[in-house]
Amino acid sequence: MMANTPNTATAAPVQENRKIRRFGMVINLDNCTGCGSCMMTCAVENNCAPAKEKITDRTGITLMRVFPVNDRQPMPVRQAGFVPMPCMQCEDPPCELVCPQQAVELDPLSGIVDQMPQRCFGCRYCMAACPYHARYFNWYDPEWPKGMEQTLNPAVAPRMRGVVEKCDFCHGRLHLAEDQAAIDGNDDYTYTPACVEACPTQAIVFGDLNDEDSEVSQLAKDPNSFRFLAKLGTEPKVYYYSEHEWRRNLAERDMNGNASRNEGKEA
């Protein structure tokens, strides 16, 4: 398909001398306690407006979202856990393919799927196309109670009503790191997204998957690592790790006829 070639029409031409990164994550599900620190930090870092009264868990903006899961066994033996879901930063993003006005693009330098809210006109086709439900629509005007605007992060532009947004691995932090690298004249930089920093159990490992020696590359290759819905061919760059088989089995839908519905609610 034509769509499989990365769309470079509006991307800045890749300069040959610049390092090409593939930022990715490995989330250790065994370490996740479902505390929600990543969700909170994410919202603060990315200037997500406080939820209005009418907002439900289906209309809110949670660029990082922690889902409760279990192994669907009867109660006394049931095992439970949590799956934090940011954008999977697919290498072949279904959302980029469908956006009619190139408001979504895979950054050739960082491997991050960028969302340009200022170009988005809110058709929400990308939300329909994303199997990970990682995209969120601004159903209302973002508003901060008086005084709270002081808490806004100056490195990140708030999004207006009527556009789609999603996790972009804290591009505010990425830009700061890039700026600093330019000042230093050193292309060898990395950075840490807010959720990674906030996780009290250090369940999230972040880094450049292109760098063979990085911890994230090593972990991604671990036999206990997996990606969600790998059969769809979207090539996510967010990996999950678990030493428990039932958690690894969450990767794909059960094809054997066992009920596969989640009985719990989101955290």
Binding site: A3, A9, V98, C99, P100, Q101, C123
Partner: peptide, 13 residues
């Protein structure tokens, strides 16, 4: 914007 920055791969375009 769709006319100005069309994604020629998108069916919606």
């Amino acid at each position: 914007f769709t006319f100005w920055h069309p994604n020629t791969h998108s069916m919606l375009t």
